[in-house]
């Protein structure tokens, strides 16, 4: 019995909790990608670097707040700085739309052109981030580290294995929960949200119903910029901030959006967790976990790890390829890319 409990705790500690946190971060990222895809009708390659850009502002403001001694201990100061980062990400999104994307929209350019243009925007944002904050890892988390500490958990339960829940993980899951509910309420119930769904569903008919396309596009960027900054800040607090890592996040985020069905917000959330848990379960070494469960004679000698962690991006890649081959519309029947 104790073996099973230890196994469960071990699994929670190394798979369930990290998977939930990472999945939440991917879900928020994928929601932004899916939203831009449904309104502007292209896959935005600049989304990862938009996350980096917004997060960079959060970090700069956080440092400044820390230097003047403003904080909300035990919560991280970054939460205070979050609205500023969101504003910066929204501003650069709207500027890139005004000076870049709008031109191609007016020309009714094909989606391929938009994608390539977004890669250009990606390089631009990437460059800005590197110039302003540099390419290195940045530390900006403060406040309490843990909600549940390993030692305390062990003492309380008397188990061999301890459970740790980092504040950043708990925060990620809670914030994602609130943001996703607010977003779905907005899309399902509000007048503007319905106009956005209508515009995504049938652009011409939305125009015939009096929906203002410029407004819909602006709202889409406002939401995408906000989501990108929230996702990026939570990821940075949970792991660390490094511009290149955010660029790399594009792959699992796209995989998440496509697995769920691109253009489908529920799909983006589900896809985020599917990709995260695939990554975490495939790269986890099950040796210790199995030792708790099987008789001594069956104990595995190897690590029982399907894939070493360096290859975790291969998981997203494989998911992406398989989904595109087998079910290109994704789980929730989004649009075919």
């Amino acid at each position: 019995m104790e073996g099973i409990l230890n196994a469960v705790v071990l699994f929670s500690n190394f798979v369930l909790i990290p998977g939930m946190a990472y999945g939440s971060q991917l879900a928020l990222g994928a929601l932004g990608v899916t939203l831009i895809y449904s309104i502007l009708r292209f896959a935005n390659f600049a989304h990862g670097d938009l996350m980096a850009f917004g997060t960079m502002f959060v970090i700069l403001i956080t440092w400044w707040l820390q230097s003047i001694g403003v904080g909300i201990d035990p919560l991280p100061t970054a939460l205070l700085a979050l609205p500023f980062g969101m504003a910066a990400a929204i501003a650069i999104s709207l500027l890139s739309d005004r000076f870049v994307y709008r031109f191609y929209r007016r020309n009714k350019s094909p989606a391929v052109i938009f994608v390539i243009v977004s890669i250009g925007v990606m390089f631009l944002m990437n460059g800005l981030v590197r110039v302003i904050i540099g390419p290195n890892d940045q530390e900006f988390g403060d406040g309490a580290r843990f909600l549940i500490k390993v030692r305390e958990f062990k003492e309380a339960t008397g188990l061999n294995e301890g459970l740790a829940l980092k504040l950043s993980q708990g925060l990620t899951i809670a914030v994602t929960f609130v943001v996703v509910i607010a977003l779905f309420w907005f899309l399902q119930k509000s007048r503007t949200g319905k106009a956005m769904r209508a515009y995504s569903d049938n652009e011409d008919l939305a125009l015939l119903s009096g929906v203002n396309p410029d407004k819909v596009v602006i709202v889409a960027w406002v939401i995408a910029g906000s989501l990108a900054t929230i996702a990026g800040t939570l990821y940075g607090l949970d792991k660390s901030f490094k511009p290149f890592t955010y660029f790399q996040l594009l792959l699992p985020i796209f995989a998440a959006a496509i697995v769920g069905g691109i253009g489908h917000p529920v799909g983006a959330v589900v896809g985020g967790y599917v990709v995260a848990f695939s990554e975490v379960t495939v790269t986890y070494a099950y040796k210790k976990f199995l030792i708790y469960l099987v008789p001594e004679s069956w104990e595995p000698e190897s690590l029982v790890q399907l894939l070493s962690t360096e290859y975790k991006f291969a998981v997203s890649f494989v998911i992406l390829v398989v989904v595109l081959l087998v079910r290109p519309t994704g789980i929730f029947k989004g649009k075919v890319l």
């Binding site: 007048r191 769904r197 209508a198 569903d201 049938n202 008919l205 939305a206 119903s209 929906v211």
Partner: peptide
Amino acid sequence: VFAGMTVEENLEMGAYL
């Protein structure tokens, strides 16, 4: 019609303005 939206939402969109 807005194929992905409910009948009632279609009507609401008609009244958007």
